[in-house]
Amino acid sequence: MSVPEDQGVRDAAPGADPLARAAEALRLHTDAGWVRVRQRVVDAALSAVRPARTVAAQHELGRFSVSTDVLTDVVRTALEPLPDAAPSRVVFETDDDDRLVAVRTTVVVAFGADVVEAAEQVRQEVGGVLRAVLGEVAPASGGFVVDVHVGDVTVDRRTL
């Protein structure tokens, strides 16, 4: 919302248009109620379970399953250090036994970066971290496919 710097003072001043004053008064008025409920709202939101599927994992201690929601967070965290690319979407494909068949990662790439190199870094990181989390349960055909799709380019690396 763009409000000229002095407009608030002008609108809130007695004698000004009461509706403009009213709108400005509400904008300037911070409800104490928000301060009271803010933490509760954040905590409740972050504890909400996102819709997700499970992916099979196999380690020395046995077989277990991992939520795609957790895997998405794992992939995002793994890609954080990359200087030229950041994920915008991660989609997992599984077979009938919930084994990971493919992971498709859409990324934003920094303008001027070597796209092929950035995509390859993403592919390596995603493949590596998922193999570490899931163990060796991908189909016997040789593991899961890691697809990388460059969906956007940004000129501001801070927005990666």
Binding site: V37, R40, V41, A45, S47, V49, R50
Partner: peptide, 13 residues
Amino acid sequence: ADCLQDAMADAWR
């Protein structure tokens, strides 16, 4: 408060 909790949970999901 309840409404905002619900709405922000919807947002997170």
